[in-house]
Design a protein around this nucleic acid. Structure first.
Length: 807
RNA sequence: GCGAGCGUGGCGAAAUUGGCAGACGCGCCGGACUUAGGAUCCGGUGGGCAACCAUGCAGGUUCAAGUCCUGUCGCUCGCACCA
């Protein structure tokens, strides 16, 4: 069989007959299968794409044959930096290179033979898509969830743009690995922090990998504690007090100082004249430090006294106020209380600055090593002595609330999502700046704000659009006076935060989606993609879905019911495939040689889907061989008249059906293929047996081909036709296991003596424990191994094993 | 540092959730058919001559442990001054 030929043949037939066109009126419950949409990079599809799209497609085809009305769309995440950087290097406009890349990738995706319904395709860089991305921005703006502020942001000097917290990895830009610097800039933010609690609470009910759920929980970083207000001894203007956040109010009596972050707005105000020079120098030095230096835990705990003092509200003690960079301006109130005895950082800082260390918590078993950071019992804490940390921290906060000096408070580690990018190749932010009216949103009727084609996009830290007069010059929609457009573009994660809503109704030009349609088609039933998006795309999408739900657009508030992460296919050397390492395995030559079905089959068979692993050349040949073995059997019996009468293989066949049907929905493709191989091996054995009946083998093959169709779609279509199938195998329903064929008359038991296997005995199936024991003890085999001994205890596991305990 | 996960033949991996460890495949060995075989088909294949020994290592629970518990080593990933 020439695989390339039959693959083209069946793709043509599927295309001509429209078999993969989604029909929402078709029978069966809708089942929305989605893979993370590809970014059209210059290169062709790589092994990771095949692993993601090929195998998820087999899942989709399986669901279809099992009666679901499957919707599997595909599109392109087409805005973004790589295309723009490529343009800067080569002079090819991002739109042009993107168009070319999409054409190539789309052709390859079609060659893969997926059941994607291309009628719903879109690209996020097209005005008819980003019009609605801009619409989404306006909805957030109108509801107070998009706002502008001047704030320190992460700036990547290489990409020449701001990036979000989620896109900073180890202090470096996740894309280009350049060290990120902090920069004060006026930026647009989405108020994802407003949804911290909802995002956290929603996690529990999701059918997602636990690890990913944990990552999101940690990212949100909920921390329940309280605030404590320390009055300043000397008032400075209207600054009366410093508020700190703590999770350990039970240690409040142990406070020996208070710390402000170097960026805290009070620092320059409260500092005394004697200390000003030292403090200014310290603050200036802290500002110069990179994110990496700044957040290194092993770093010395440095800091400077401000000269100011404040009062501990719980005991009236006067404590000094320091400025130290181990206190982060971006978390809590940007100020902390220093409890040297019960916090490792405070302990180190106190030692360095010769400050008193006051123990106020006792360990339960006399542990008196400091710092003691565990929970214990309060001591040296006045009326609170004897309370456990648990109860004490609440009691202290309640007291503070009565005193008007604090109370309970919950903080989240997550920050707002910065969405402004000073780059060209993105969706323009639909805002207008007017000298009289301020920031004014573009009226929805004027959308899209079209990205101009002719722009000099060489990066210089400012948005390239700012240099484009024809773009920026406009009139204020409110007062009609000349005004200026926002020249930043949106983070591409905004484009991909809502795309799954667009597919069902992808060409709607009246709305981003039809409300009735999305509510019927979503949430996505099974979402397949890499684990690297745990705290970016997957979190943003949940946020946007919840916002649109709260605004009344959606009935559901979680986008992805079930999530599966594929593993990573490594090079044969066990390392990640990379050009520099020279270990890249390209899919194209393999497909030319073995066909796309063989590649798919190997990707299924050779790996645990969620684990991935190193590529092996031998693996794909074994799958090609397996396919040849089936084909030879089909050739041998194709002209017979199929007959189900013989029955020799009924057990093997039905066992295979049962296992494959169990494995595929769990993405257990490796074992599903193994079961099919066992069945084929059994057919070969049957073929050489005395009772070989080709007509019966044909019947078994007809079922097998259906069973395997989702895994090797073109190949099985062809075989199905050879075996007399008149219509596409995907219009057939999936084989059903006949449980009655799995009943065997007897079971082979392993017989253990003192837990060691000594012999095997065959007994009738379905006996109860007592009968099994009795029957086993009467067999010659057991009598022999017992050698006259009498068991003092007998353990029987029905249909498995018998353990005889003798002294 | 904290958290999670993983560690099984020469290799990729299975193991009905505490019940015959190594399914299935690669590789290797042997046989058949062949002028030939890197095609195909059939058989064998954890180690050890054996009793037995084997799931990173050391203990424990159990009639029974790859699976549960404790400790330990190694690898991977995530978080990392979050008060």
């Amino acid at each position: 069989m020439n695989h390339n030929e039959i693959e083209r043949k069946w793709q043509g037939i599927w295309n001509d007959t429209g078999i993969n066109t989604f029909d929402d009126k078709a029978k069966g419950d809708k089942h929305y299968v989605l893979e993370m949409l590809p970014y059209p990079s210059g290169a062709k599809l790589h092994m990771g794409h095949w692993y993601n799209y090929g195998i998820a497609d087999s899942y989709a085809r399986f669901m279809r044959m099992n009666g679901k009305n499957v919707f599997q769309p595909m599109g392109f995440d087409a805005f973004g930096l790589p295309a723009e950087n490529y343009a800067i290097k080569t002079g090819v406009h991002p739109k042009d290179s993107t168009d070319v890349n999409i054409a190539t990738m789309e052709r390859q995706l079609r060659d893969m033979g997926t059941m994607v319904d291309w009628n719903h395709e879109f690209r996020t860089c097209a005005p008819d898509y980003y019009k609605w991305t801009q619409w989404l921005f306006l909805q957030l703006y109108k509801n107070g969830l998009a706002y502008q502020k001047k704030a320190p942001v992460n700036f990547c000097p290489s990409c020449q743009t701001v990036i979000a917290n989620e896109q900073v990895v180890d202090g470096k830009c996740e894309r280009c690995k350049t060290e990120v610097v902090r920069k004060e800039m006026t930026q647009w933010f989405f108020k994802i922090t407003d949804y911290a609690e909802k995002l956290l609470n929603g996690i529990d009910a999701l059918d997602w990998p636990e690890k990913t759920k944990t990552m999101q929980r940690n990212w949100i970083g909920k921390s329940v504690g309280g605030e404590v207000i320390f009055d300043l001894v000397k008032l400075v203007g209207d600054i009366k007090s410093i508020t700190v956040f703590t999770t350990r109010a039970d240690t409040l009596f142990g406070v020996t100082y208070v710390v402000l972050a170097p960026e805290h707005p009070y620092v320059s105000a409260i500092v005394t004249d004697e200390q000003r020079a030292a403090v200014d120098a310290y603050v200036a030095q802290a500002a110069k430090q990179s994110e990496i230096e700044r957040t290194s835990t092993s770093k010395d705990k440095t800091g400077v006294f401000t000269g100011a003092y404040c009062i501990n509200p719980i005991n009236g003690e006067k404590v000094p106020v320091y400025v130290a960079d181990y206190c982060l301006s971006t978390y809590g109130t940007g100020a902390v209380m220093g409890v040297a005895a019960h916090d490792t950082r405070d302990y180190a800082f106190a030692l360095k600055n010769n400050m008193p260390i006051k123990r106020v918590i006792c360990g339960k078993n006399g542990n008196d090593e400091l710092p003691f950071t565990e929970y214990g019992v309060m001591t040296n804490s006045g009326e609170f002595d004897g309370l456990t940390s648990d109860k004490g921290k609440i009691a202290v906060l309640e007291k503070l609330a009565k005193l008007g000096h604090g109370g309970k408070k919950t903080n989240y580690r997550m920050r707002d999502w910065s969405v402004s990018r000073q780059r060209y190749w993105g969706a323009p932010i639909p805002m207008i700046y007017c000298d009289r009216c301020g920031a004014v949103p573009v009226p929805e009727k004027d959308l899209p704000v079209t990205l101009p084609y002719d722009v000099n996009f060489t990066p210089d830290g400012k948005s390239p659009l700012a240099r484009c007069e024809e773009f920026t010059k406009t009139v204020c929609p409110v007062c009609g006076k000349p005004s200026r457009r926002e020249s930043d573009t949106l983070d591409t994660f905004v484009c991909s935060s809502w795309y799954y809503l667009r597919y069902p109704d992808a060409h709607n030009d009246k709305a981003p989606f039809d409300k009735k349609t999305v509510n019927k088609m979503l949430p996505v039933d099974c979402y397949v993609g890499g684990a690297e998006h745990a705290c970016t795309h997957l979190l943003y999408s949940r946020f946007i879905t919840k916002v649109l739900h709260d605004l009344g657009y959606l009935d559901f508030d979680e986008p992805f019911k079930r999530l599966v992460h594929q593993g990573v296919i490594l090079g044969p050397d066990g390392y990640r495939m990379s050009k520099t390492r020279g270990n890249v395995i390209s899919a194209d030559p393999l497909i030319e040689k073995y066909g796309s079905d063989a590649l798919r089959l190997y990707l299924m068979f050779g790996f645990d889907y969620t684990e991935g692993g190193p590529w092996s050349d031998g693996g794909i040949t074994s799958c090609a061989k397996f396919m040849d073995r089936i084909e030879r059997l089909v050739e041998e019996v194709k002209n017979e008249k199929a007959s189900a009468t013989d029955g020799s293989l009924d057990y093997e066949l039905n066992y295979c059906i049962k296992e494959v049907k169990k494995d595929i929905p769990e993405f257990g493709f490796n074992t599903a293929v193994a079961r099919l191989m066992e069945l084929v091996n059994a057919m070969y054995k049957y073929r050489t047996s005395a009772e070989y009946n080709p007509a019966y083998l044909k019947h078994v093959l007809q079922v097998t081909v259906k069973l395997m169709a989702p895994l090797a779609p073109h190949f099985c279509e062809e075989l199905n036709q050879m075996l007399g199938g008149k219509k596409s195998v995907f219009l057939e329903s999936y084989p059903i296991c006949d449980e009655s064929k799995l009943v065997k008359s007897s079971t082979e038991y392993a017989v253990q003596i003192n837990s060691k296997i000594r012999c095997k005995v065959v007994l009738p199936q379905g006996l109860d424990r007592a009968a099994i024991e009795k029957a086993a003890l009467e067999t010659a085999e057991v009598k022999e191994v017992l050698n006259g001994a009498t068991p003092v205890k007998v353990i029987v596991i029905p249909e498995r094993l018998i353990n005889l305990i003798v002294n």
